[in-house]
Every structure is written in structure tokens, then in C-alpha cells.
Amino acid sequence: MENNNVIVVTSGKGGVGKTTTSANVGTGLAKLGKKVCLIDTDIGLRNLDVVMGLENRIVYNLVDVVEGNCRVKQALIRDKRHPGLYLMPSAQTRDKTAVSPGQMIKVIEHLKEQFDYIILDCPAGIEQGFQNAIAGATRALVVTTPEVSAIRDADRIIGLLEANGFKQMDLIINRLRADMVKRGDMMSASDVVDILAIPLIGVIPDDENVVVSTNQGEPLVGKDTPAGQAYAHVVQRIEGKEVPFMNFDRGISFFAKVTGIFHKA
């Protein structure tokens, strides 16, 4: 397996859509026939299991694995809807100090042999939970929304990732509202790319179907909704395909290619 496929989904700020993005990217890659392992690294505040609709099937978790209470395989929940998709849930009753970066690297080394992709859902913040999540990763998806606070935190995260030797960092701009961009009340995708200066890999429009899909515990990637399509495009770009960006705002033309203006960084 190529070692560039251990991807951490991170943002700094909470509530911008890390878990939703992890769930959709993981599910989308599995739909393309890849073997994918999602790991929830948010110890004490696990959520990826509910977003994936797998909360009733948890027996063991990440902390059990690192403490040796079970084998790695026993903690993996297979998603029956998508062959090849597995979730390693986090512990709900422990805290971040239960796992160390070294232990994370060991777990990932073990999983790497069996999976095409490992997606790590990172907790908010820049403390130990963040250090744990990035320890074994080689690539990052930085999620932000077009808001001052989220962009500021994303910038800080990008700096920390750079300091930790990350070479590949891609930006996902979540919850963009084309109508607000049009009337000058929201930064456009290209405004955000200009500020953060890392390559753009996806623009997810604000879509109420995301809430519906979270209610139902089934990621909407690939479904016929604006966010479902946008996530499907992100997945294809992760796989190295060139997909034109959808025309959500004045900054991006329908035919603008991924390799075009956005790869100047």
C-alpha cells in the first residue's frame, strides 16, 4: 500500500464538519471499491459512530486496542452497507491521555497492511488529541467554513501540520452559501484559498440534507443533493482524478480545473 493514504481530517475549530467529512470521504472511497478504515480519535467525545449509524454495534474501542484488552481486528466494526468499510470507534468514558502518539503510530502501522485508506477523524483543538490524530498520518484534509474564526484556526492548524513535516495538505471549504457570497456577505472559495494558501480539494455547499443524513446515520456522499455531489467529487480528487469545481461562487468558473488557479500554492 502507498503510505500516503493515511489521511487526517482536521480543522482546529470545532463544529465545522470534520466528522461529517470523515464519514463521507470514507464512505465515498468504499463506494469506489477501496478498503477503508475510519478511526475516531476523539476520545471522550466520540461521534463518528453515530454519524455513520454504527453506534449500536460497538463492543471494543481504540483505547481497548492500545491497552491490549482486545486485538485490533476485534475493535473494527464492519459497515454492512458498504463492503470494505470499517470503523474503529473511540472510547466515550476516557480522556485524551489514554492514548499516546506512539501508540497511535503502532495501531496505524498494523492497519496499513490491510487497508487502502485510513481516515483519522481528529478532535477539535491543538492539544494531545490533535497530536495523537496526526502522529500516524502522512496527509491532511483541512476543513474550514468561510468564517473568520474557522479560517483563523485552520491557519494555525496548517502551521502546526507544516511544523510536523506534512507535505500534502488539502483544503475543504464547508457550508458555503452561494447566495451570501453573491451579495458580498460571505467569503468566496477563492478568497479563502488566497488566505490559507494550500490547494483546494473541495467546496461543500451548505445543504440541509447533511442534517437529514446525520439524523438517519447514513452519509450522503454520491446522493443526488448538492453536498452529496460535492463530497463525491472530493473523493474522486483524493483518488487523483481531475474533477471541475461546481459553480458555487463568483470566484470559480464551472470549467476551472483542479490544476488551474488553485494549485499555485
Binding site: E147, V148, I151, R152, D155, R156, G159, V181, R183, G184, D185, M186, M187, S188, D191, I195
Partner: peptide, 20 residues
């Protein structure tokens, strides 16, 4: 000024001091 422009201007100054 549009609120988008205000946000960009504020971020520019903020991020310079954050980064260094």
C-alpha cells in the same frame, strides 16, 4: 464595505501576527 471585504481585511492583519 461588504462584510466579506471586512472579514478579509481583518483576517489579513490577524494572520500575519498569528503566523509570526
Amino acid at each position: 464595505k461588504s462584510s466579506c471585504q471586512v472579514a478579509k481585511d481583518r483576517l489579513k492583519i490577524l494572520l500575519i501576527s498569528d503566523r509570526v
